[in-house]
Each structure stands twice: as C-alpha cells, then as structure tokens.
Amino acid sequence: MPEATRWRICREVVVHRIDDEAVVYDPGAHEVLYLDADAFEVFKQVDGTRDDAAIFLKLAQKHGERTDEVASRFAPVLAAMRRHGWIGRILGADEVS
C-alpha cells in the first residue's frame, strides 16, 4: 500500500494509519475504532503508560506545550478511549481504573 502503513502496537491490535488519522482493528473482538488526529496522537503515547498524567506529560514534551494545556485538549479523547476499553487493549492487559 503506497501511503497507509500497517503495524502492530501489541499482539492483539492492528493499526492502519492514513494521513494523520488511523483505523484500529482488534481481531480478537472483531471491532474497529476510528481515531481522528487527536485521538491517534494519544493512542501513540499510551503504549506502556497507564496513567493519565504520564500520558499528558509525554504529549507535552512531544509538542513543547504546557501539561495543563495538553490535558485540556486530550483529556476527552483519553476518557473516551478508556470508556471503550481501548487503553487496556493497547497495553495488552486489562484496563486499570
């Protein structure tokens, strides 16, 4: 495929990236998730990190912004990903609250 790339975040989840967005497929649950640019940005930082503050810190460092600014922008996305149980799947473990 010329532009879209495909790789595995962990064993269970397949990510199909197109431009700045992505479609994530969980073969185990046969479920797909659309990630817009913000959601995909969060998605890429989640791997290995369970804690919201740690995720926001990684995003702030990447974007060169203040952590509270990043948190206000990305908190709804992160909350939605937790609500759908995707954080745990990305980590390859059950989600922890």
Partner: peptide, 14 residues
Amino acid sequence: YRAATLDVLGGVVE
C-alpha cells in the same frame, strides 16, 4: 476476510 479487509479497503480509499 477480517484484517485483510483493512488492507484492501485502505488501498481503495487511498
């Protein structure tokens, strides 16, 4: 076709 579907349809939308 499951995951292969993403490759095919991804190629189509590109």
